[in-house]
Structures are given as structure tokens and as C-alpha cells.
Design a protein around this nucleic acid. Structure first.
Length: 457
RNA sequence: GUGGUUGUAGUUCAGUUGGUUAGAACGCCUGGUUGUGGUCCAGGAGGUCGCCGGUUCGAGCCCGGUCUCCCACCCCA
């Protein structure tokens, strides 16, 4: 029998212990902040019925859905005609389930199914993997985690303000201090397209303007021109590109710009309200910047949108994003439920933190102390000590095999265990054990009480 | 989905116009040191040269296909 070299699917990854400890630090930090702001956990299945997923992400999104082949004789119901109709026609006949593409649509599905049990406003967070049949690239995978928090059943802009507070808290707890939150409003983007006489071309406008910082104004104007924007429209966009100053200054320019636009006025008022709430929450700097060129791809956003980037990192892509969607549950037959949510990109946050080298050291190992043993008596004493250490909630382990001290030491060294405890003949007699700091190399004889005190710090 | 690129030891990479038994560094294992790791010294293990086929007396090297990796675009976290 031929043994194949093992491999994992394209665009997927294993997370070894070292990476997991770091990822857990990120996830625990995010989870703690979510809960601090009153969000409750939710998990949904990895697979959804395909009918729940299709049509929610646009034509391109449907292509990126992973479909699950029906079990058993999946061809039994397929007729000759179905085969002639091509794969798009055939797929729904042989695959009724698919892997979730994001966490927002399954959440919407959950809200609709449980609408009579849920007390609104409903605040939930969800940390689970999602799957996309995209072509992998740097920072882009076919399986990756999302950390979403959403509020549904209220249109209060307190939610938007609190999202900004939460982002600030998470970033600071992670040690990412130099970052910027960009804020905009889809209503303003719609108002602008109307204002320049390109009514209904909002989608093309968003896609193009979103690239401004990447490809520059000229290329954006070219793209708009290629997508049916008249020269006159593009000329009228000038004030949008040129709006500048502090957030307050930008706001007052916006107010003027939208004198005759109902939608623009609403968009402006919403932004103003968010900034007012933020001021009430405290005088702190929230790293928020009003940016009219922020658009975000997902089409379901209808209100305020936001995006976060780390400033001094080589990772330029956004690490967090979100916004308000007025009618997400509408496609499942429940209308009038407004929601606002955002999502942390764990993989990108990981890359940024690795890039900046800011992972805290205590996450390099989970074990605090390794107990070394020399012979049977030593092992028995170590086991007793181990029980005491664990009773004191100190992460500790004993090397399972009777091997040389050198090897046991090496194990501690490689694993990044900061302390080793040596219990030999002399130590047992004396009732004091050798505690060695692996980093400094120092060691001292201490009683069990002293050791526990020392390691608890 | 479109275009380009890469593939040799666990890892990073050498490998001459095609020529005997494919190398280095790091890592790993053993010993020097039977109670002291991270330094040093000595020794050792480890390869279907991505895979399939073709050209050739002979292929890691040339040709075709395929898979994979990475990059750009599209889109996105």
C-alpha cells in the first residue's frame, strides 16, 4: 500500500501550541471586552442549509460558498436535463448544505428563528471559523476565524459609540496603541452619488472610492469614469476628496454640503450624534477619524460604517470592521429589525502583533514550573509537591520518564517553562527544594510555602 | 475566476554546458558532563530532488502535463 505524504487543504492551517497560546491571548482579550459591554455568547453550526446562505453575498459571494455534497447516492434524484444545465444548475440538486461564509447571516437566521424568545435589543458575540472558497494569499485563508459582536432590535447610536469604545479597549489591552478608526456613513455615500447626479450608482461609487488610499485619486476617477460616471459628476466630487481638518471641521463642511439633501442631512446627524456620545463617555482620545472615502464592500450596510487599521505596522489591511444594517433579517421574513455589528480579524491582528513583536511573554508557555526527578524517591516526592502546586493553581508538570536531568532541563528549556524544581535526596531530608529560574540561571533552596508564594506572583 | 512565480533533508538554501555514492548551515538524536538547560567539542540519524510521463547510454538539471507555494488583479477578514 502506498502511503501518501500527509497534507492539509489549500488555504487552511494548523495552529501549533506556540501559535495557539498567542491566538488565545487575542481571543480571550476580545471575549472579555465583549462580555464587559453586555454581549452574550452564541454559536451556530459550521454548516447551514444552502438556501440560508445563497443570495446573501451577491453573485460573487455565491461562488465562494463551500457546498457540502449530499450523503449517500447524491445522484439518485439527478436527471439528464440537470446535467445539461451546467454546474450552477446541478449544484443545488446534489448539495443542500454549505459551510458558513460569515457569522452575520447565521446570526440573522438565528434571530428570525428565535424572534419570540429573544428579548430585544439582543446583544450577542460569536467567535467561530468561517469558510470561503477564495484563492488564498497573504493574510487570506479559506478557513479563518471571525469575532463578531452585533446588537439587533435598536437603532440607537449608542451602539455605534460603544463599538468604538470596545475597539479602543481591545486594542489597548492587546498592546496595539497606534491605530486609527475610520468612520463614515453609507447614507452620506448615497447622498453624494445623488448630489453629483449619479443616482443609483452607489455600489460602483463605493467600490471605487474605497481604493483611494491604495491607488490614488486619479485612478479612482478613471475607474468611476469607466463605470458610467460622467465627467461632470466626477468634477462635482472634488469637495469630497478635498474635505479636510478635524472631525468637527469636517462635520461642519458636511452640513453645508448637504443643505439640500435629505439623506445627507440624516447621515450627517447620525455621525454628529456618535461624536457627541463619545464626548459624553469621556474626554479620552478614541482614535476616531471621519473619512468620507471609507466605503466597505459588503452591500448590506445602510448606516454608519467603520474600519480599523494599525498605523506603524507593515500590515496595511484593516484589522476590524463593521457597520449598521437596517434590514438584515428582512430576507428571512422579519423586517424592521435594525442591527449594528463589527468584527475583529484575528489572523490579521495576530500578524500585526507578530510584526510589532508585542505578544506578552507570559503567553510563551502555559507551564510555570517543571519538576525534575533523579530516582524513584525523588519522583515520589515530586508527585507530592506537584499536587500541592496544582492545589495552589500553579501550572505545573513532572517529566514522565526516568531520564537524565540534562534531558529534563532541555525539555523545560525548549518548552519555555520559566522555572524548574529539583527534589533530590538532600532536598527531601532538608524539606527545602531547589527552585531554578531558567532565564537567569539562579537557583535557591526554598520551602514549599515559599515556592508557592514565589510562583504565584 | 484572470495573469505571473516557486518546488532539493525538519527549516533556510547551494547544486557547474545533463555525468559515479545529491551537499551546507541551522534544527534533531547520542556522547563529552551517572544532580543542572540555553555556550563549546566529537559523533550520528535524516532525501522517491512535489507528482506523472517524455527526450537521452545517462535527468535534481532539458521537454510536456499535473499538483503545490507565493504574488498581483477581482473581492475580502
Amino acid at each position: 500500500m502506498k502511503i501518501d505524504k500527509p497534507s492539509i487543504p489549500k488555504g487552511t492551517r494548523d495552529f501549533g501550541p506556540e501559535k495557539m497560546l498567542k491566538r488565545q491571548f487575542i481571543l480571550n482579550t476580545i471575549r472579555a471586552v465583549f462580555e464587559k459591554y453586555g454581549f452574550q455568547p452564541l454559536e451556530t453550526p459550521a454548516m447551514e442549509n444552502l438556501s440560508v446562505l445563497t443570495g446573501k453575498y451577491g453573485a460573487e459571494g455565491d461562488q465562494l460558498l463551500y457546498k457540502i455534497l449530499n450523503s449517500g447516492d447524491f445522484l439518485s434524484k439527478v436527471k439528464e436535463d440537470d446535467l445539461q444545465g451546467g454546474y450552477k444548475n446541478l449544484a443545488p440538486k446534489i448539495a443542500e448544505k454549505g459551510l458558513r461564509y460569515d457569522l452575520t447571516v447565521p446570526f440573522a437566521r438565528y434571530v428570525v428563528m428565535n424572534q419570540h424568545d429573544i428579548t430585544f435589543p439582543f446583544k450577542r458575540y460569536q467567535i467561530q471559523p468561517v469558510w470561503r472558497a477564495d484563492r488564498p494569499q497573504k493574510g487570506r485563508y479559506r478557513e479563518f476565524y471571525q469575532c463578531d459582536a452585533d446588537v439587533v432590535g435598536t437603532d440607537s447610536l449608542i451602539c455605534e459609540s460603544e463599538i468604538i469604545l470596545m475597539i479602543n479597549e481591545v486594542m489597548h489591552n492587546l498592546g496595539i496603541h497606534d491605530f486609527s478608526i475610520k468612520l463614515n456613513n453609507r447614507k452620506i455615500l448615497t447622498a453624494i452619488t445623488d448630489l453629483v447626479g449619479a443616482h443609483g450608482k452607489e455600489a460602483q461609487f463605493c467600490v471605487a472610492i474605497d481604493k483611494l488610499d491604495k491607488i490614488g485619486r486619479q485612478k479612482v476617477e478613471e475607474e468611476l469614469s469607466n463605470n458610467g460616471f460622467s465627467d461632470d459628476s466626477i468634477k462635482k466630487l472634488a469637495p469630497v476628496f478635498e474635505i479636510q481638518g478635524t472631525n468637527a471641521e469636517k462635520l461642519s463642511q458636511l452640513e453645508k454640503l448637504f443643505e439640500n439633501s435629505e439623506e445627507g442631512k440624516v447621515g450627517y446627524a447620525e455621525l454628529r450624534q456618535v461624536f457627541d456620545f463619545l464626548n459624553n463617555f469621556g474626554e479620552g482620545q478614541y482614535n476616531v477619524e471621519l473619512d468620507l472615502t471609507l466605503a466597505r464592500g459588503l452591500s448590506y450596510y445602510t448606516g454608519i460604517i467603520l474600519e480599523v487599521r494599525a498605523n506603524n505596522s507593515s500590515i496595511k489591511s484593516s484589522i476590524t470592521g463593521g457597520g449598521r444594517y437596517d434590514n438584515l433579517t428582512g430576507v428571512f421574513g422579519l423586517s424592521g429589525v435594525s442591527g449594528v455589528g463589527f468584527s475583529f480579524g484575528v489572523d490579521r491582528i495576530y500578524d500585526v502583533m507578530e510584526d510589532l513583536d508585542i505578544f506578552p511573554k507570559e503567553y510563551e508557555s502555559s507551564t510555570k514550573v517543571l519538576l525534575l526527578h533523579f530516582d524513584e524517591n525523588s519522583l515520589n516526592a515530586s508527585i507530592k509537591a506537584l499536587a500541592q502546586l496544582r492545589a495552589a493553581d500553579i501550572k505545573s508538570e513532572v517529566y514522565p520518564d526516568a531520564v537524565k536531568i540534562k534531558k529534563q532541563m532541555n525539555y523545560a528549556n525548549k518548552k519555555g517553562v520559566p522555572f524548574v524544581l529539583m527534589i533530590g535526596e538532600d532536598e527531601i531530608k532538608e524539606g527545602k527544594y531547589q527552585l531554578k529560574n531558567m532565564k537567569s540561571g539562579e537557583q535557591q533552596k526554598l520551602s514549599m510555602e515559599e515556592i508557592i508564594l514565589h510562583l504565584s506572583a
